[in-house]
Design a protein around this nucleic acid. Structure first.
Lengths: 344, 344
DNA sequence: CTGAAAGCGCTTACAG
DNA sequence: CTGAAAGCGCTTACAG
């Protein structure tokens, strides 16, 4: 008979196991394990033999077995209210980048309200499945953070400044103040603001902080924000459009508007177009985020380095996993980007 | 001594195990396992006792142990070139939605080129970690698909029509033809096209198919696409902007332009603005995708139900996992959405 | 319908 | 520096 195209059969079926490697290298499975995990005290020659066998067998450790035996899950859980917004996906990409470099899986929990609540009871899809939890844009406040700490794994919160838990966030009040100053500098007196309670149903820190920062900065310049100049845009494009229409229907319409997100600002620009008005000329419009589309529509906005926030958060998480990590807060940078919409 | 605030101690430390449940319910661990996995032939009363104990102990099976013992990973791997584009994140959200309903984890592989290549060698981060693989927008062609099938797990490809592997995709040629017909119907003769080789470095089916569909439809209406009216926009906003500037610098500029993506169209609109020209009036612009921002800038475009493509793909994957699933292709719907940019 | 027992593939004290 | 062995927490034939 002609020889079969397959190997004679020292090759066991299915993926190679650590025992296969041990056999081929002529050592114990314990040694293979140590050699592979860069455990100290493995003779150089031994290590070489092991790595050799690993390469020949194309061995990859079964992660479930490793995790069961070691008690480490090798994965970080991430919870965010909405995953498809530009902001969130950019943030998550930053997290993923760092985590994959550190050889950690990322397990994403879609956070419907129900799940976010149960999260606080420590009773989540993440039980026994993650070594750490990253919260994105989930308003959890100090009490929530404290409860989270009881889960027994490190927690990093992104988008909210906290004391009891490591966090990274921009200073929303400062960002909003940049906008207020810019508009006042441009000579505006009648200024409107489009905010909202965001896409989530719980109280959220972002609109509150931006509101406070904006109003405070105006006041410092001797201006008050007329209550009728506050509109809710729900943090959506459609909401921003409707909000601006309402504001412009006022008997004394504004000459400038601060939209708490670029997406609401896009809606505002649409409303302007519908009225035959031009941004920058008939109304100054300023957003917040520096969404990729902002430049192409000439929108003045406050840029936040979103991906970098994600990266930083992931790095802090990895440090926590390694042990030596005090709770701390990192403030992410913010920068006013002036374009035509505020009258360049 | 006052009694400690902790339970007397029938409560073992750490999360409850299946043995704890078995003990409390007075059955074997085998029975607990069966009761929990809806195995047939478990007495109703027994099942009740087990579920009771589970609830009292707040037991959740350790997934690593389950996976090691059963050989099922309970997770689906997904590979996509870029995760942050609107298109991809929307698609992934659709996948996640269905998968989480089916109790599957989603493991996302960031697909740098290197990784995509090694993927084809079956030698990836997904080894022993996933029960199935979903490919998003990775041009893999029939040969690639065949090689993928050898990985031993079901594969579903999204964004490309394939025969050897289950796939779901829009008909790009048909979509582009819708645009061509629309522009010709509007009376345009000098028509340009902004395409590109996408963000990825490998040959991709999308631009090729849209190109062919567009050119074919024009020809059917008796028009040729002037070679100088083809510009590469690289599927980015900036690229689209530069491309339109080039086209408009032509001695005989176009009266209409088809941009193969909405994002490139946003760049084109920016270029128009920079020249003091208005979309719809001075130049008809049509995109492809129906990106959320498209409506607010009044962009005529071809809408694809992106999230639904993701959902469908995930459903097909779940079916494959359940066994009975022939290889098949599902065509996703496409629809021309007319707005002001093409002169309404 | 149920239990005893083997086994999944690793890791890690423990003892050289 | 290395090995024998126990153990991680489940699942699943196998035998009632």
């Amino acid at each position: 008979m002609p020889s079969s195209p397959h190997q004679p059969s020292s090759q066991p079926p299915g993926p190679a196991t650590i025992a296969d490697v041990a056999r081929m290298a002529g050592v114990s499975t314990a040694t293979v394990s140590r050699a592979l995990r860069d455990h100290p005290y493995v003779a150089a020659t031994t290590k070489r033999k092991v790595l050799d066998a690993v390469a020949r067998l194309r061995y990859v450790a079964n992660p479930h077995a490793s995790r069961l035996a070691s008690g480490n899950t090798g994965t970080i859980g991430l919870i965010a209210p909405v995953l498809t917004s530009w902001y969130t996906s950019e943030l998550v990409a930053g997290v993923e980048e760092v985590l994959s470099d550190a050889d950690h899986d990322l397990l994403i929990g879609s956070a419907s309200t129900r799940q976010r609540e149960s999260m606080f009871r420590g009773d989540i899809q993440f039980r026994q499945r993650v070594d750490g939890i990253i919260l994105v844009d989930v308003f959890c406040s100090e009490e929530g953070a404290v409860r989270l700490s009881t889960l027994g794994v490190p927690v990093v919160v992104l988008g909210e400044r906290l004391h009891s838990v490591t966090s990274v966030a921009v200073d929303n009040a400062v960002g909003a103040a940049l906008v207020a100053d810019h508009l006042v500098d441009r000579g505006h007196h009648r200024i409107a603001m489009i905010g909202g309670q965001s896409h989530i149903d719980v109280a959220h820190n972002v609109p509150t902080e931006r509101d406070a920062g904006f109003v405070g900065a105006l006041r410092a310049r001797g201006l008050d924000l007329d209550p009728t100049m506050r509109a809710d845009g729900g943090f959506t494009i459609a909401g921003g459009r409707a909000a601006l229409h309402r504001l412009l229907d006022s008997p004394t319409p504004p000459s400038a508007v601060f939209s708490m997100s670029d997406e609401m600002a896009f809606g505002a620009l649409q409303a302007l177009r519908e009225r035959g008005m031009a941004p920058g000329r008939d109304l100054a419009v300023v957003g917040f985020d520096d969404h990729p589309v902002a430049e192409s529509v000439g929108l003045t906005t406050v840029r936040q380095a979103v991906r970098e926030i994600g990266r930083t958060g992931a790095r802090l998480m990895v440090e926590s996993l390694d042990g030596d990590a005090p709770v701390r807060h990192v403030a992410a940078p913010l920068e006013l980007v002036v374009r035509e919409s505020s009258g360049s």
